[in-house]
Amino acid sequence: MPMSYYLILSAAMFAIGVLGVILRRNPLVVFMSLELMFNAANLVFVAFSAYHQILDGDLFVFFVMTTAAAEVAVGLALMVAIFRAKRTIDLDEMSMLKG
C-alpha cells in the first residue's frame, strides 16, 4: 500500500481526535480522543518505520504506549476523584475557575 494511505488515515484519526477534544464535553470522551491522537502518531511511526526499513519507529511506539498508560492512570484517577466529589465530570459543569 502506498504511504499516502497510512498518512491520510492517520491524519484523519488525528483530526477526529482534535475535534473530539475541542467539541466534546465529557472528559472520558475527550480522553479517548486524546488516545486517538496518540495512536494516529503511532500509526505514522509504524508506517514510516516499515517504509524506511528501520526499527526506530516501532520502538518509539512502545514508549508512546507506556507514556499513554501513565497518562491514563493519572487521568482516570483524576476523573474518579472529581466524579466522587461532584457526581458529574461534565466539563461544562467545571465553573469554579472563572475563565
Binding site: T66, L76, R84
Partner: peptide, 26 residues
C-alpha cells in the same frame, strides 16, 4: 451502584504495572 474506590485504584495500578510487563517481555 457506586463501587468502592478500591476498584479504580486497582485498575489504575494494573495499567501501570502491566505496561511494565510489556517491557520485561520484550
Amino acid at each position: 451502584r457506586r463501587m468502592s474506590v478500591r476498584y479504580y485504584l486497582i485498575a489504575v495500578l494494573f495499567i501501570l504495572f502491566d505496561i511494565e510487563v510489556v517491557f520485561v517481555v520484550s
